[in-house]
Write a protein that binds this DNA or RNA. Sequence first.
DNA 1: CGAATTGTGTTGACGCCGTCAACTTCGGTG
DNA 2: CACCGAAGTTGACGGCGTCAACACAATTCG
Lengths: 240, 240
Amino acid sequence: MWLEPRLVPGGNLASLAKPFATRPRMPRKPEPPRDLREACIAEALAVIERDGVEALSLREVARRLGVSHQAPYKHYPSRDHLLAEVVRRAFAAFAAHLDARPRAKDPFEDLHAMGRAYLDYALRHPLQYRLMFGTPLPDAEAHPDMMLDGRHAFGLLKSAIAALDEARPEPARPADPRQDALLVWSMLHGLASIGQCSALQTLRLPRAVMTAMHAHAMARMEEGLRAALPAARATRGRRT
Amino acid sequence: MWLEPRLVPGGNLASLAKPFATRPRMPRKPEPPRDLREACIAEALAVIERDGVEALSLREVARRLGVSHQAPYKHYPSRDHLLAEVVRRAFAAFAAHLDARPRAKDPFEDLHAMGRAYLDYALRHPLQYRLMFGTPLPDAEAHPDMMLDGRHAFGLLKSAIAALDEARPEPARPADPRQDALLVWSMLHGLASIGQCSALQTLRLPRAVMTAMHAHAMARMEEGLRAALPAARATRGRRT
DNA sequence: CGAATTGTGTTGACGCCGTCAACTTCGGTG
DNA sequence: CACCGAAGTTGACGGCGTCAACACAATTCG
């Protein structure tokens, strides 16, 4: 079960696995070595797309690739390491998609662009999105690289919120941008999930409600962000 | 694979399972008949709590209960049927929790109570919440009973939103309550997920941001719901 | 040049799992 | 009493992750 990640001989940690061995003479193998490695990822995505994450198995990947059931094991110490790499790339693509959104000078407009980019990615890559946010991921502690670009994506959102706060005329209430960023992300994630989450798919809402949802939600959220926030009303009725 | 849910012999529906058979002479076995059946559910929860959903197996449940590996199979046709029953009960408890919230006359206050009840359940029963919304569920089509109380829960939220719309002074914009209900649910789900989702746990935000998040989000959302919604601004900048 | 090493892939085995099939046990019914 | 059906048992099958040992290339070094 690989409970001691320090000893993992594989993947991106290969250089760390043997800090004492023959390091400086890394052999020049530009593509051959990552051939099967790349093919595994493509096939893993195909398997996940066809049968879901839980159906992903190294044996199935190996079978599709026509190699022995242990060949992928030479590149990924375990099934979770392969999955973690797939997830890592999904986060990277997601962050890149957010980063490539059409920039706008108006901070509110930019936030809208961010929201559209977010939901656009979720809509166009439901497999990857569900992989990132909708399925139990390999332990993040054991796969630290997996979430690097995830944090970057959140950083983009946080920056957009911060720019919005900065441009606001009255800086009376500083309002930690991370808080609003979390809020916006929560809403966006909820919106994106609703279209996919098996729990909510059964609500059988009319199509029109779903299609108008994104614009409606962004508008509501903008109202919430624009509004001044009387502290008295904000905490009214709290219990604990 | 039990594609005909009509035949599911399950749980509290046992009395419905045999509408034509020897009903009046139900043998007096108050506990023995549902003994193993109930015990399976308890053990399934224990397994899930200890090792996660993916670790749930009928064999493990049977082993813990000291019966043969096929004994649970007599009560649940497959692992998914057992899991679906666990999920069904989680939704039932969730809906009951929302329904038992302290009622308030002011619709906004009631919506706040709903939000608190929602997040309170997610906080106090993270296992069940993650089970309902955070993990791939058994196919809802194959297990129609699973989501009944889930729909009921959404109905409660929708009613709260509808009451809010009704009490609003200016009924200029009807605003399908289902849309706002979805929006509020999205945000609540996002908030609840953030504390659990493995993807977001790695953001390492300070504790204060998380604790103040709920009140902050509800206040922002209330602002958004209170605000009039100029259609021009709502759709400004849309692309498609 | 030959030996050692490392990377890559193969085969075989183990125990886990879900599932199907056949068997036993036993309480209740006709 | 013979019968039946529900509950539980045992045994087997294939698939899976994983460990261990082996085969074979290329590379590096003495």
